[in-house]
Nucleic acid binder design. Sequence first.
RNA 1: GGAGAGAUGGCAGAGUGGUCGAUUGCGGCGGUCUUGAAAACCGUUGUCCCUUUGCGGGGACCGGGGGUUCGAAUCCCUCUCUCUCCGCCA
Length: 424
Amino acid sequence: MITLRYIQENPGEVIEKLAKKQFDAREIVGSIVELTEAKNQTQVQADKARAEMNALSRDIGQLMRTGKKQEAEEARQRTAELKEQIRELEQQFAGLEVSIRELQVLLPNLPHVTVPYGKTPEENEVIRSGGVKPLLGAGTLPHWDLAARYRLIDFELGVKLTGAGFPVYRGKGAQLQRALINFFLDQARRNGYEEIQPPLMVNEASGFGTGQLPDKEGQMYHVTADNFYMIPTAEVPVTNIYRDVILEAGDLPVKNCAYSACFRREAGSYGKDVRGLNRLHQFDKVEIVQITHPDHSYGVLEEMVNYVESLVQKLELPYRIIRLCGGDMGFTSALTYDFEVWSAAQEKWLEVSSVSNFESFQANRLKLRYRGEAGKKPELAHTLNGSALALPRIVAALLENNQTPDGIKIPEALIPWCGFDRIP
RNA sequence: GGAGAGAUGGCAGAGUGGUCGAUUGCGGCGGUCUUGAAAACCGUUGUCCCUUUGCGGGGACCGGGGGUUCGAAUCCCUCUCUCUCCGCCA
């Protein structure tokens, strides 16, 4: 959420920057500015009336104590009108606040200056790429066939137990999952991230804090009996650790990582995009989260991108890093880099990570602040996060790219975590 | 699931209608003393909003919401959460 003060002081800039996100903010910003002006005027009046009322009440107390009943009674009669006036002003004020808030939450985050113009994914900017696409011979199989042949993942069994999109991993398939999770967590720890094991369900307040609620409600599984939500990413519980928190400047940057299962309803997706591991309702992911001083968040974003790059390099997967254009960016992000790996049999790029700087957009909702110097006012911190990494598409690419007549080769770096070097 | 207790400032813990944003202790910060440190002593110590060029001024907040009252941390209603005991249980 963009702060009211910022909108109020820079309405033109907000409109201009949001145009890059293909968002016409003119009407909303205009209304916000107008309503805020009215709200402030109302507050001045209400505060004045309350000040008067407070003084009067104190006087009455004083008069009562000194036994001047008569005068106290006179003063009391004067309060009736004031009281009514305060009631009205407070109602007005509350109404204006609600209206402003409703508009305020409609505004996406402002894009960073380096965000490219563009409307569709085609206009995203490839920053760099690495690795070598494997040359596979005839008889190349997509990962869902490989998963069946080597008895790694059973999609139909998942349908029996739960439904489509809930695969069952077994044997070496299950071991590979566990190895990847441990590999990612261990790498993160070596890079200074503290490991967190978060709850997999969160309450409404947490859903709001990171921006899933109220509007993206349909994305999450809702446990209605207790009004909990299954997390769509560990970002939600991990970032919400810092909801309503004031950090000391010395605590920054906070670096957390977490493995979690992630649950997404993905309502309305079908077709070949959802085949195999390409899109699931439950999947595993290791997430990295950082909370930084506003002056350092873009340096940290680069650091996080470099870190994720090191992971796909260790896994020897052909990859490319993409800077999302304004039209393709998420609602809450100021700058996002996506990572895609090449899936050799499907012959397409699969998104496996998204690394974003949210600047103070999430922090404002979360009331996440830091204190620069003792005695100074706390200010909003910056939050960043990224997948490091999401497992299913990594597994898809690993299986497809590394298939040989003798089985599936495990990348060198992963063998210590796997305990085997080949799936025969 | 049954029964009970509670929610106050970073923490602990007072406060049951009138200068209470809140006694006190601990912690934190500053100072005196000391070669330095500890101890002791003194001072200071929340968040948010509005207003003002500035100094400053005003308002809100004692789990959330509503009510009674001239006046609520204190009384009433309601919701949420936490804890304890019993039952069940990985």
